[in-house]
Computed example of a mutant assay.
Amino acid sequence: MSNSTNRRPIITHENPKSPISEAYRTLRTNIQFSSIDEELKVLMITSAGPGEGKSTTLVNLAVAYAQADKKVLVIDADLRKPTMHHTLQVSNRWGLTNLLTNQLSIPEVLQASAIKNLNIITSGPIPPNPSEILASKKMTSVLDELRQQFDIVLIDAPPAIAVTDSQIIATRSDGVILVVDSDRVKRDAALKAKQNLDNVRARILGVVLNNVDRKNRDAYYYYYYGESK
């Protein structure tokens, strides 16, 4: 079990009536309506650089789907700095790297979280060659199999301008969400991340802008979505 001190709060689970939780539900709805003729089942979440909130966005979006009675799988494909096992408080002794190197099967690496309908495949041991492992034919076959088992698969990928991992995963995903911290990331960095994804013809569904000042709107959202008696 992971150390609870490393766990980030999951607001959609702990405070589902908050305006922030409603924003994640809105994101879920926008994704669902972003493609009418094609079902989006495998989504990759990335950011331009580290610390922008991609993993927080992913796990809250995952809970939003789970709360809608969808069978959800989170895959931690950040094989360099994995964090999802801390967030969902599961073991990382085995995971995606064991699966992709044919040491274990999908049922052996699949773990149920404490949240209903939400499962996870953690990163597993950090490998010396993350990009090569993610580019393997095994990764493609694994995702094809998981499409049949889950309603939605959300992949936590490394930052898009740091390494090529995100570009590799994007080619195997139905869509990409780019998370941008409005306070930290410069325009050039965000555009570079988008360009890297465009270079592999990734299907960018949209951008999540974090840390936007919404003080004036919060009062309205708390009033509208607050608990009624």
Rank of each mutant, 00 (worst) to 15 (best):
A66I: 10
A66C: 13
K70G: 04
K71I: 12
K71R: 14
K71H: 13
V72L: 03
L73M: 04
V74S: 02
I75S: 02
I75K: 00
I75N: 04
D76A: 07
A77Q: 05
D78F: 01
L79H: 07
K81W: 04
K81L: 13
K81F: 02
K81C: 12
T83N: 15
T83G: 10
M84W: 00
H86N: 14
L88Y: 09
L88C: 09
Q89V: 11
V90A: 02
V90T: 15
S91D: 10
N92F: 01
R93M: 10
R93T: 07
L96P: 08
L96V: 06
N98Q: 10
N98C: 04
N98V: 01
L99A: 02
L100N: 01
T101G: 09
T101N: 11
N102G: 11
Q103N: 12
S105V: 11
S105N: 13
I106C: 05
I106T: 12
P107V: 02
E108L: 05
E108D: 12
E108A: 12
E108M: 07
V109L: 05
V109M: 07
V109I: 07
L110F: 06
L110T: 03
L110H: 02
Q111K: 14
Q111C: 04
A112Q: 13
A112V: 08
A112K: 13
S113K: 08
S113E: 04
S113Q: 01
S113R: 02
A114Y: 11
I115C: 06
I115E: 01
I115D: 00
I115P: 06
K116M: 12
N117Q: 13
N117T: 11
N117E: 10
L118M: 11
L118E: 04
L118I: 12
I120M: 08
I121H: 00
I121E: 08
T122G: 01
S123I: 11
S123H: 09
G124Y: 05
G124D: 05
P125W: 07
P125K: 09
I126Y: 04
I126Q: 08
P127R: 06
P127G: 07
P127K: 03
P128S: 07
N129W: 09
P130V: 06
P130R: 06
S131G: 09
S131Q: 09
I133C: 06
I133L: 12
A135R: 06
K137F: 15
K137E: 15
S141N: 15
V142F: 07
V142I: 13
L143Y: 03
L143H: 06
E145A: 15
E145S: 15
L146Y: 00
L146M: 11
Q148K: 14
Q148W: 06
Q148T: 11
F150M: 08
D151H: 00
D151T: 09
I152R: 08
I152G: 02
I152Q: 01
V153H: 08
D156M: 03
A157R: 01
A157S: 09
P158E: 03
